[in-house]
């Protein structure tokens, strides 16, 4: 195959843009997955007792009474009062790490772990708490869990759909580019074919060319995407960010998420390579 031509440079740019979009979309999907996991992890298999300040009972007695009631209820595995630091940690998925305002009136909380596989009469427990402990309220997370699971699932589905569309678009571009490349180099293909080259030899020349093209374009897109993600994190952390931006979830915070992004150029390169091989073999198959 001849070296890079003007059309090759255009193709590089297009592949880089597709890779950039794929990396950003994958980053968004991974972030959504992580958020959904964070949201639901602490909520399933457990309930929370909130103790709001009440004039009828002191906070210490309120906590003692509520703990006693919960611990003797059938099907309860453990009941653990949470300090303020732990209560703030529970708010992190919503408010971000270290962003809980100091004077926020955080209620006393008891984290109640349910015995796995054992039915618990939560409605009765809630009623017993409401009747027996002033200011006590049982939150079984059910409504939250359902809504969050539904939101996370639909968001993830949209993300995967966009990723799929980008994949299909990349495939179409590579097919078109390969066919255009074959047309531009038809003379070369014919000569090499006529001097006795086997189809797989010619196809391997094309597939190697398009593998490198896909990898190079993909790496350029990945680099731009990582720069964008790091840039957005830096912006959110910076003083110039608008008020409230700090409470937004950050894209791709875990190192393993960046590892997944590195698969994007590899996948694009492989798509380009196999598409080129398939297309070239199909075109050559029509020759004598």
């Amino acid at each position: 195959m001849p070296g890079d031509s003007a059309s090759g440079a255009t193709l590089h740019t297009i592949v880089a843009v597709m890779s950039f979009l794929a990396c950003l979309t994958l980053g968004a999907v991974l972030t959504l997955s992580r958020l959904a996991a964070d949201w639901t992890e602490g909520l399933s298999g457990s309930v929370t007792v909130q103790l709001l300040p009440s004039p009828q009972i002191s906070p210490e007695d309120q906590m003692k009474e509520a703990l006693r009631l919960v611990q003797q209820w059938p099907g309860i595995f453990a009941a653990k009062p949470l300090g303020r630091a732990e209560a703030e940690k529970l708010l992190e998925p919503w408010l971000g790490e270290g962003n809980v305002i100091g004077d926020l009136p955080v209620p006393q909380l008891i984290e109640v772990t349910l015995t796995p596989g054992k039915p618990v009469e939560l409605e009765g427990l809630g009623k017993a708490l409401a009747d027996g402990v002033p200011g006590a309220h049982l939150d079984d997370h059910k409504r939250w869990n359902e809504e969050l699971a539904s939101f996370a699932a639909s968001s993830e589905a949209v993300g995967w759909a966009v990723l799929l569309l980008i994949g299909v678009a990349t495939l179409a571009i590579v097919i078109y580019a390969t066919q255009a490349g074959l047309q531009a180099h038809r003379e070369i293909v014919e000569v090499v074919h006529m001097i006795g080259a086997r189809d797989v030899f010619i196809a391997s020349e094309f597939q190697r060319h398009f593998l490198w093209l896909g990898l190079r374009g993909g790496l350029i897109g990945l680099t731009l995407a990582i720069a964008t993600l790091l840039g957005s994190s830096f912006f959110v952390d910076s003083r110039e960010a608008p008020v409230g931006a700090q409470y937004m979830p950050q894209f791709v915070t875990a190192p393993q998420h960046y590892i997944w992004l590195f698969f994007v150029p590899v996948v694009i390169g492989l798509i380009a390579m196999y598409t080129a091989r398939f297309t070239v073999l199909r075109v050559l198959g029509r020759m004598p």
């Binding site: 001849p2 070296g3 003379e187 070369i188 014919e190 000569v191 006529m194 001097i195 006795g196 080259a197 086997r198 189809d199 004598p288």
Partner: peptide, 24 residues
């Protein structure tokens, strides 16, 4: 069979009228 034709082509040398050299 088509896959055996390359072996036959290799037994033939061709000088094309327009040379058909590969410019790159």
């Amino acid at each position: 069979p088509r896959e055996e034709l390359p072996a036959l082509r290799r037994r033939i040398g061709v000088v094309f009228q327009d040379f058909r050299l590969l410019d790159h």
